[in-house]
Design a protein around this nucleic acid. Structure first.
Length: 475
RNA sequence: GCUCCCAUCGUCUAGCGGUCUAGGACGUCGCCCUCUCACGGCGAAAACAGGGGUUCGAGUCCCCUUGGGAGCGCCA
């Protein structure tokens, strides 16, 4: 009992899976899952110059990380070039397309003049009704669609509503290049048709393409799939998303310490809403998702909100999952902290044991890792001179007591440190996290005095100091 | 330049002609909790771009202006 709904995500492998693409993929995925249908993944690699294997890998890995699975095999558009060519030939045979021998120079001049005269810049159809016999023998040609010149082309869009173009504003697009390869416009139509796509969901930068593709569908006598063009995501300043504001690959978000569940939740609320609900489990998203609730105006990317959501998800995550997430980031961010890919078993277990106290205050996995600094700090431990300078009188006095002990700490294992710090925390009646962060601050001097004061107070008054000293002496 | 799309707090948004003295969330600012930070709780400031219509009545419908955005390739 297969459902008729088929969506597809069709990125071109010319870079990483950026945040806008990730949201498009998410919407396609949600729509398909909501309707019990299938989502296909098609790599649009017909541009041989710019497509790279690295980009393909990055896209696939990005989707996996985000938890967006697709149905069936990945489809590569380039592999279908022969089929595209056949379709172009059939259009030529049916009279819905024609050979155009205009040179690149002619086309450039055409555009320039049209622009100068304030006319829309488009192909003037000079070979549309001309006898191909007039072309210089052996001259290269492209195949163009013989598009209607009168009437209008209408796109019924689930998000944008009914959008209309006068056919005179749409020119005869190229279907097959002079080297015999298909253009994007032809390939998309043929592939979506052959793949049985029923619902196209993509960025609204494709809205104009939707009209031109509709003309191709009509010329072919094929049914036009339902369309939904979603608004683009903009940067914090309202301008087009650039690297500066978040047009990073999803791998960058992973390395910034964001959880895929949090990113999904953030992304789904960008342009889509369900009443006042802000937090959605994956199941809730799937059941609530509806194209009609997608807005038409572009949304700006806001790191602050993503971060808030991420903190929420971290607090609710399983301890082992958080540590697994941290480990996944280690290849890129571990070196700076003296940590590498698979955590030693004992350290990993200690990390997990420390999570309940630490995750209460972390907004990203990076913060979580840093707050656990006391577990993996280089030994012997030493307090930062600058940090010491920030202390008040009372704290300074306490420091005098504690410092010799801290500075005497030799090589030490994480479990022992965890046990000692946990003991401090418990016997002082505070949460582990309240000790961990200040401890890191005291060791690195990366924070101002309040937390530093705190850890010293905890350490200084704690009776387990003696135990700590004993342990240190033993090892 | 041409075509198309968009316009509610700083940001994401609710609002589908009257229930809007415009709701929620993030952020910001206060207060509480607390040995700091965070979490949590309470509260505050904060928006219908402007102008014309239509209507008994407009944030909600229409038009114009202004302001954004996208597209205009033998790129995708």
């Amino acid at each position: 009992m297969s459902s008729p709904v088929v969506t597809r995500f069709a990125p071109s492998p010319t870079g990483y899976l950026h945040i806008g693409g990730a949201r498009t993929a998410l919407f396609n995925w949600l729509y398909a899952r909501h309707h019990g249908g299938r989502m296909l993944l098609r790599i649009e690699d017909t541009d041989r110059e710019r497509s790279t294997q690295g980009a393909i890998d990055a896209i696939i890995e990005g989707m996996r990380w985000l938890g967006l699975d697709w149905d069936g095999e990945v489809i590569f558009q380039y592999a279908r070039a022969e089929r595209h060519r056949e379709v172009a030939e059939s259009l030529l045979a049916s009279g819905n397309a024609y050979r155009c021998y205009a040179t690149a120079e002619e086309l450039a001049e055409m555009r320039e003049r049209a622009r100068a005269e304030g006319r829309p810049s488009r192909y003037d159809g000079r070979w549309r009704d001309r006898d191909p016999a007039e072309a210089p023998a052996g001259a290269p040609y492209v195949i163009r669609l013989r598009a209607p010149t009168e009437g209008e082309t209408v796109v019924e869009d689930a998000v944008q509503g009914r959008v209309t173009w006068a056919n005179r504003d749409l020119d005869d697009l190229v279907l097959l290049r002079s080297d015999g390869t298909p253009t994007y416009m032809l390939a998309v139509v043929v592939d979506d048709h052959d793949m049985g796509v029923t619902q196209i969901i993509r960025g609204d930068d494709h809205l104009t393409n939707a009209a031109r593709q509709t003309q191709i569908y009509r010329a072919l006598g094929w049914e036009v799939p339902a369309m939904a063009h979603i608004p683009l995501i903009h940067g914090a300043d309202g301008a087009k998303l650039s690297k500066r504001h978040g047009a990073l690959g999803v791998d960058a978000y992973r390395d910034l310490g964001y959880l895929p569940s949090a990113l999904r939740n953030y992304l789904v609320r960008l342009g889509w809403s369900h009443g006042d609900q802000e937090v959605f489990s994956t199941d809730e998203m799937v059941s609530a998702f509806d194209l009609k609730a997608i807005g038409r105006s572009p949304a700006r990317f806001d790191f602050a909100k993503l971060e808030n959501l991420n903190g929420l998800y971290i607090r609710g995550a399983a301890d082992a999952d958080l540590v697994a997430g941290i480990e996944a980031m280690l290849p890129t961010i571990g070196a700076a902290r003296g940590l590498s890919a698979p955590l030693p078993e004992l350290l990993r277990e200690t990390f997990i044991a420390a999570m309940p106290g630490l995750k209460e205050r972390a907004k990203t996995l990076i913060e979580l890792l840093d707050s656990a600094y006391y577990l993996y700090a280089a030994r012997p431990l030493a307090l930062d001179e600058k940090a010491k300078g920030l202390l008040g009188e009372e704290a300074r006095a306490r420091l005098a007591e504690v410092l010799p002990v801290l500075e005497a700490l030799p090589e030490w294992n994480a479990a022992a440190t965890e046990a000692a710090v946990r003991h401090f925390a418990e016997s002082s009646g505070v949460k582990l996290g309240q000790v961990a962060q200040p401890l890191r601050a005291a060791l690195t001097g990366r924070t101002t005095s309040p937390p530093l004061f705190d850890v010293l107070a905890v350490l200084g008054r704690n009776e387990s100091l003696a135990r700590l000293r004993d342990q240190a002496a033993r090892s």
